[in-house]
Amino acid sequence: MKVSIIGGSGFTGGELLRILATHPNVEIKMATSRRYVGDYVHRVHPNLRGILDIQFTDPSTSKIAEESDVVFLCTPAGVSAKMTPEFLEAGVKVIDLSPDFRLKNPGEYERWYGWKHPRPDLLEKAVYGLPELHREDIQKADLIACPGCMSTAAILAMAPLAKTGFIKQSIVVVDAMIGSSGAGATPSLASIHAERYGVIRPYKPVGHRHTSEIEQELGLLAGENVKVAFSASSVNIVRGILVVCHCFTEKNVTVRDLWKIYRQFYGNEPFIRLVRDVKGIFRYPDPKLTVGSNFCDVGFEFDPYTNRIVALAAIDNLVKGAVGNAVQSLNIIYELDEKTGLMYPGIHPV
């Protein structure tokens, strides 16, 4: 199928080009960038030198729509809400990696993004692009809203618990730790090496926008409202997210129960690995072990002292946290094997 990428010069755009470059069923028609129009993509994404020989273009939406079956939108918040309607009218499927269509309730955009959604009617049409939870809907969708990177990790860590009633009438606490590539490629004082190197920086201890997505998806699974106390800190890596989720429960739980709950929920999902080893130096999920792969490693532990289930998840924020969900959704829409073009072993050590 013919695909185009809108906003190809950012880290997400570059990662999408990397994965699609070796995807057997995809023909990349256009990668757009206003800033780098005319440049070869490997000038911005040096890892693609010798792999992709195309240049950035900046054509009109209608030109892109003419040449593409699917468009991926790697645009900042607010851009996709304007572009998507045009693509949908032209019969082009949209896989949106921006936040513009993730939330069902328009009111939530005002509360979390301070933004009045211009096309609330489309929110119902959009499908939340997390294959492990919405495979059937994705298959029939024209508009996919790919989840946020930290939301992906937190949702996948706690989904089995939400489904089995372990997250009832209680607040879950989520501590997310993320690498510098999560902040994107736009330079800022906070992201220059001398300031960013070696930090453990609580950059959003309260009010992080991903909270709304996590509450939305866990709420659907739990069948009732879920409140999430979310804090995000940046750490001294480039790629990777670890979430530590604290779920308080009155029920008594053994590790064997947790294995059962997680195995039942994730069965033979191709990209979920349950990691709770009893020996060795890789006992729990750790993003260092997923770099460059589409795997989400999920783990758990029970703390009898505070009656608390600790749910853990680790992903590569650029792959499973962004383009991985997008390409999985593409494979689902076109009824391909979901693993197509995504079954990379991670790079270790790195």
């Binding site: 294995w259 349950l274 709770r276 080893d277 009893v278 020996k279 060795g280």
Partner: peptide, 9 residues
């Protein structure tokens, strides 16, 4: 023998 899933021996 070790368990492939959790490494218990």
């Amino acid at each position: 023998f070790s368990c492939p899933d959790c490494g218990m021996e």
